[in-house]
Structures are given as structure tokens and as C-alpha cells.
Design a protein around this nucleic acid. Structure first.
Length: 479
RNA sequence: CGGGGCGUGGCUCAGUUUGGCUAGAGCGCUUGGUUUGGGACCAAGAGGCCGGAGGUUCAAAUCCUCUCGCCCCGACCA
């Protein structure tokens, strides 16, 4: 049983939304601003983002991608070149109509995504098959005028990365689209400890302008799905709209094949929801800005010695490559600090007091299960990295077990509706692929097709009509 | 955008129904002292003009109008 030390936070199980907002603010991850729908990423929250960035950036560079930067403003006419794209994004674009006090001849979109400006530039850069592929990634911000916003999960402005690639063949582009999806899976499952399913989006749910969209979907504790990342295969849609043509080795002019893909700071929202508990945030060690907090416990005459030793042990851990903080403030009691660092999600706490000093050891406490362990000073450097890995893997396992327990298979529409109403979670069901059924399911249950599976649905009929099913699909309510 | 809820020191809230003197509490904050192994205690302090604008009134946190923001349920949305 988990004891409750922080009373001011609502219980996760009782008021999930309020719990979420409180964690974000009390752990100092983010705060509201005077601008509607816009949030500040506070240092502790931004540090998590930097760790996620680092982890993904390494993976992207290892697969040949390069970072670049493109402008914030996109001329309206560019956005309009790909018909589906503009139709999809126009309703949520913020426009700049004046500059330096003068009306602009053509208004500028504040990028909701950068396909338009990037495709324009790629058209200038690509002439020969030798110029392909182009593998560029951007770390930037985008603006989408959302009607309803939630800290990290959906904000008017948010931080993300958007990759944009151009290829010689359809196969190359599709391979890239799927490769990135697997890189995302690796990132989200292994760094953030959040299990995901990957699958293709339905026609209705795919990206505006894409031929195929693949998504990572994660299950949140309230039974709703969170789209954790997407990759898009554009075919030649954008290449044709923006005239990205090259001369192939056979002497023919051909259109390039393009992709784009992105993950955002929304991942941080997923982290909070999936791993947090009634005492606050629980961070997977690999993305924890502080992996170990050392709390010296001192009484009058031993204070100096305890603090000195705490810093000495901390330095040893830092030298071993760990992210460590010593909380030697004397205006707070140890108990207060325990609660505070639990609220902030630090994976391991190292307690060092007079008793430990006498025994040349320290008490190591896990955030995820509060188990305590006495560790000799000499063993800390070897024990702590192992303990961090144990936590990392335990968080992942726990999340995966939750998902397994909340993924159900059904072919019966009445049962589907009942489960979606009472338990939520992922529902695997056969679907004909027609948007009429998709619409009906949404109207009846508010659930949507999260993604399709590659499982064949031979012999099965659609969940809600008489047609033969085309796919098994994952359904869920979503964020 | 529709329906509902809520905006009062940093935080959580009372006060609003039935307008009335200097707007309250707990926590937090500052200073001093005692403490310190699960959010310590005592004492003395600082801090709000009641989300914003307008109106009614002798008098507005309280009534009316407009407006901004946050939360929830929908609609919408990579």
C-alpha cells in the first residue's frame, strides 16, 4: 500500500484531469500565461524535453538525417498549393497581415507545419537523382489555433520536431516512413517507458495531404488513447504541387516522393499521465533531469560532516555519468524534502544521516515503489545505475500490463458500445473500412479508429454493418 | 463553437443567495529562536481591492451588462 504524503493533490484515480493539472504546476513543469492556450515550459519541464530531444536527435543522426531551420512564416499562396493540405490546416492557422505598421500584400501564415515552405525549397535543390534523398529534420515551434487546449497535450503553440524527406522512389519513401515509425517506437518505449501500438490511420484520420499516415498510439490510465507521433507517406502529392522534379538515370524527368514525421512536447504529457501516481510525478530514469537526489539528514554537531560526505558521494555519481542533485537546504526538514522530490518524480533518493555515516552506507529509496535498501558507499556507483535500469524497466512493464489488461477484442457492436462506455481502453474490432461506419461508431460512442492492424480479417464482417471486414482496427476514445 | 462549472494575497478556499464600517482563514513567504530519519514548533511581520471594463446605488467582492481566462462534457482538431 502506498502511503499518502502529499495531501493537496487530488488522487489520480478520483479526479484525473485535476490531478494532471496539479502535477504539471506543482512539479514546476509548466505554467499558464496571459496568452490563451499558450504555456511556459519551465526549466524542469524543458529539461525533460531536452533529454527527449537528445535521445531522438542521436537516433535521427545515426540514420543519416541532418538538422536545419526554416522560417516561421509561410506565404498564403504556398500553403494553398496542395489542396488537401490547405483544407486541413486553414481553419487553425494564425495569420500575419501587417508588418512594420503596413498591410502586407500577401498575408503570412505562422507555420502550423512546414511542408509548404520546405517543399518549395526542395524544388529548388533537387535536379538529379543524385540529389536524393534529402533527409532534413527541424527542431522548432508551430502554432495551431486550437479551440480547446490542455497543458502539454494540446496547446496553441508547441515545440516539436518535424522531419521532411524527399526520395527517388516510392519504395524508398515508404521505407523511410516506416523506419521513422520504428525509431519513434524505440524512443517512446525505451526512453519514455510508454508502450505503443503502431498502425496506419484511416482515410478520415490521416494527415491533410498524405497518401498514408502511420501513428503511434499509447493508452492513458483513463482509458483514452494518446497519439504519440505520426509519420506520413505523401506519395507524389506534394512533389507535384511544388514541382519537385529530377532527371533520373534513365534520362526521364520524374517527380520525387516525399515524407514527413513528427513528435512533440505532447510526449511529456503522456509521461506524466502514464507513470505518475498519487504522490506526484514519476519520471523514467532515462528522461529524468535529476536521477538521484541526495538528502543529507543532519543534527547540530554532525551537520558539517554529513553535508560534506553527501557532496562527496554525489560527485562520485556525477563522475559516473549520472544526473545528481544534493538538497542540502537547511530550511526544510528531511521529510519535507522526501515529499517534494517524490512530487517532482526523481527516480532515486539517497538518504545520508549520522547512522549511515557510522555504517559507511546510505539508504537508497525507489520512487516507483518506495522500497528502501541499504547500500555501502563503495557499492553506490555500481548499484545505482542498476537500480535506475530496474525502475526504467519496471515502469515500462507496468504500463504494458495496464495496456494488455485494457485491450479487448470484440466482433459484437453491442458489446463494443458497452465496453467503450464502461471501461474504455483499446478495442480491437473488424471494420469494413467505410467512413460511414467510422462515423456511426463515433456518433454512438465518441470513439474513433486509432489505427489499423496488419492482421487479416478474412471471414469476419464489419463491427457495425454487413460488409466483409477489411481490417482489424484499434478503436478508442482519444485526446 | 454549443452546454455546464469556476475566477477573492503565491496556493486552496470562506464571504456573494438577503449590497453596509479597516475583505477573512489555512498553507506558503520574511525575521528571530528551537528543531531536523516521512511535508516540525513558537513568536513577530509582509502581502490582496476581490480576473477586466462599464453600469445601478448614499454604498458593490456581492446586483446588471459586456469581456478575458481556466476546468469538464461535446463539436472541431497531425
Amino acid at each position: 500500500m502506498v502511503e499518502e504524503y502529499v495531501t493537496a493533490i487530488p488522487k489520480k484515480s478520483e479526479d484525473f484531469s485535476e490531478w494532471y493539472v496539479q502535477i504539471v504546476r506543482r512539479a514546476e513543469l509548466a505554467d499558464y500565461t496571459p496568452v490563451k492556450g499558450c504555456m511556459v515550459y519551465r526549466p524542469y519541464g524543458y529539461a525533460i524535453w531536452e533529454l527527449i530531444q537528445g535521445a531522438l536527435d542521436r537516433r535521427l543522426k545515426a540514420t543519416g538525417h541532418q538538422n536545419a531551420y526554416f522560417p516561421l512564416f509561410i506565404p498564403e499562396s504556398f500553403l494553398a498549393k496542395e489542396a488537401e493540405h490547405v483544407k486541413g490546416f486553414a481553419p487553425e492557422v494564425a495569420w500575419v497581415t501587417q508588418g512594420g505598421g503596413e498591410e502586407l500584400e500577401e498575408r503570412l501564415a505562422i507555420r502550423p507545419t512546414s511542408e509548404a515552405i520546405i517543399m518549395h525549397m526542395y524544388a529548388k535543390w533537387v535536379h538529379s537523382y543524385r540529389d536524393l534523398p534529402i533527409l532534413i529534420n527541424l527542431w522548432n515551434n508551430v502554432v495551431r489555433w486550437e479551440k480547446v487546449t490542455r497543458l502539454f497535450l494540446r496547446t496553441t503553440e508547441f515545440l516539436w520536431q518535424e522531419g521532411h524527406t524527399a526520395h527517388r522512389t516510392s519504395e524508398d519513401a515508404m521505407e523511410e516512413t516506416l523506419r521513422i515509425a520504428e525509431i519513434y517506437r524505440d524512443l517512446v518505449e525505451n526512453e519514455l517507458a510508454i508502450p505503443v501500438i503502431i498502425g496506419q490511420k484511416s482515410e478520415q484520420e490521416k494527415f491533410a495531404g498524405a497518401q498514408a499516415t502511420f501513428a503511434l498510439e499509447a493508452l492513458m490510465p483513463d482509458g483514452k488513447a494518446l497519439q504519440a507521433g505520426t509519420t506520413h507517406f505523401f506519395g507524389q502529392n506534394f512533389a507535384k504541387a511544388f514541382e519537385i522534379k529530377y532527371l533520373d538515370s534513365d534520362g526521364e524527368q520524374k517527380y520525387a516522393w516525399t515524407t514527413s514525421w513528427g513528435v512533440s512536447t505532447r510526449l511529456i504529457g503522456g509521461l506524466i499521465m502514464v507513470h505518475g501516481d498519487d504522490a506526484g510525478l514519476v519520471l523514467p530514469p532515462r528522461v529524468a533531469p535529476i536521477q538521484v537526489v541526495v538528502v543529507p539528514i543532519f543534527y547540530g554537531n554532525e551537520q558539517e560532516e554529513v553535508i560534506r560526505k553527501a557532496h562527496e558521494l554525489a560527485q562520485t555519481l556525477v563522475n559516473a555519468g549520472l544526473r545528481v542533485k544534493v538538497d542540502d537546504r537547511d530550511e526544510y526538514t528531511p521529510g519535507w524534502k522526501f515529499s517534494e522530490w517524490e512530487l517532482r518524480g526523481v527516480p532515486l533518493r539517497l538518504e545520508l544521516g549520522p547512522r549511515d555515516l557510522a555504517a559507511s552506507s546510505a539508504i537508497l529509496v525507489r520512487r516507483d515503489n518506495r522500497k528502501k535498501e541499504k547500500v555501502g558507499w563503495d557499492a553506490l556507483v555500481s548499484r545505482i545505475p542498476v537500480a535506475l535500469e530496474e525502475i526504467q524497466s519496471s515502469l515500462y512493464q507496468r504500463a504494458k500490463e495496464f495496456r494488455t489488461a485494457n485491450t479487448r477484442r470484440t466482433t459484437n457492436y453491442a458489446q463494443f458500445q458497452k465496453v467503450m462506455e464502461e471501461q474504455r481502453g483499446f478495442l480491437l474490432a473488424p471494420w469494413c473500412g467505410e467512413s460511414a461506419c467510422e462515423d456511426r461508431i463515433k456518433a454512438d460512442t465518441t470513439a474513433t479508429v486509432r489505427c489499423l492492424t496488419t492482421d487479416t480479417a478474412e471471414g469476419a464482417t464489419c463491427l457495425c454493418c454487413d460488409r466483409p471486414a477489411a481490417h482489424w482496427a484499434y478503436f478508442a476514445k482519444s485526446y
